[in-house]
Design a binder for these strands. Structure first.
Lengths: 210, 210
DNA sequence: TAGCTTATGTGATATTAATCACAAAATAAT
DNA sequence: ATTATTTTGTGATTAATATCACATAAGCTA
């Protein structure tokens, strides 16, 4: 744990803070598709992502979904931070897109560290900032882009996050993430294939251009 | 200034912090439609909103706009907080929807206060939290609602924020905020009027139901 | 009051996306 | 190998929204 923690966080956190994290943090391995946070959960801490990729999804009353953004190593979940500190509920769902490793930080420490460590304050503010910007990007996509553009952005973003140009996914899964229908996704994917940007297989999509 | 500050913030901030704010904060009055923050600005501090209403808008490269959310008294702009602390650029535009009063807090103090005052830490985290939730609401609207619902939500939200059931606005202005066309807004407004939810006048819309 | 400017109303048409209905192919299960 | 299940492909239809092209109305200005 210490090893991986240092790999991604030694330039972010002070040595004393790293020590504390090793002491109180709880290491956890997530298997693919494991739900880390669910709608309405009250968080008892925040996760630091050491390895892997986590998908953050919003769901409305009718059970309709939309992807908000992905987390990758070095990230944390700003939404659960707020939920943990204020004892409020979390408005999102977090699902491991692939096998991932996290360190769970107990909420008792979160405020204490804000006082003690400048690096922690920076990290928290920076995390919120990144998340706000991701949300804005999502809003940009929804407001300004058409479905074919959103789809292509989704595929390239996901390839980046997964560090893999070959994505194992179905058209239906994509439709859930983009909140549209499978038929629409299939047709637009075929279009992208004709434009030479991707290559389609069953349960698999290769992203050719970036 | 002290008076208004105490009115909305005495239950939020510790007395010592209120004292400091009075000392270093810069009071400013904004006239209607004044631009407080513009795209790409580097913030030298953060505004506390004492009175009025401020519209936060996102703009893409092509100059197309969409409303993100409104700020009301007691709020602060989380986006400029991050920008101020990290010396980064602000991705939004903030415009006074009506005459407003703010206190501008210099960025030098922001981090210092995180260490000194628990109430400040709470306020900052809480502000980020509120803003993340507003962004999620915006995403919900864009992803899950049709234009007529978005329009009605816009009108009722705005009436709330402005503390006024009678809104002085044109169809074109609304179209900009919702990122659609004036024609569409006019037609849907007429529909809402027929449903008895609003009453239309030139340059004015009365919201009848909430 | 006549002319100008801004705001609103409305038909016609085009585009995008949603929905239905079913066929065909690939894979998994028995 | 046969059957069942999952995934993908595709035509037809409908609904929502965007766009164009004017008409009308309301308020301002000279």
């Amino acid at each position: 744990m210490r090893e991986k923690l240092e790999k991604y966080f030694s330039f972010v956190f002070e040595k004393e803070l790293l020590d504390e994290i090793v002491q109180v943090g709880v290491y956890k391995k997530l298997r693919e598709n494991e739900v880390l946070v669910d709608l309405g959960d009250k968080m008892k801490g925040v996760p630091l992502l050491l390895e892997g990729a986590i998908k953050i999804v919003r769901e409305d009353k009718k059970g309709e979904e939309i992807l908000l953004y992905f987390l990758e190593r070095g990230d944390t979940c700003a939404s659960s931070f707020a939920s943990a500190i204020s004892n409020g509920k979390c408005g999102i769902r977090a699902i491991a897109e692939k096998e991932s490793e996290i360190i769970f930080l107990p909420k008792e420490k979160l405020d204490e560290w804000l006082v003690k460590y400048k690096s922690w304050r920076n990290f928290v503010i920076e995390s919120y900032n990144i998340r706000l910007n991701e949300m804005m990007e999502t809003i940009d996509s929804l407001a300004f882009m058409k479905m074919n553009e959103r789809l292509y952005k989704y595929l390239t973003d996901k390839a980046q996050i997964m560090r893999e140009t070959s994505l194992n996914t179905t058209h239906q899964d994509i439709a859930y993430d983009l909140h549209t229908s499978r038929v629409v996704v299939s047709r637009l994917l075929k279009q992208l294939e004709n434009e030479g940007k991707i290559k389609l297989h069953r349960n698999k999509i290769e992203v050719l251009e970036f």
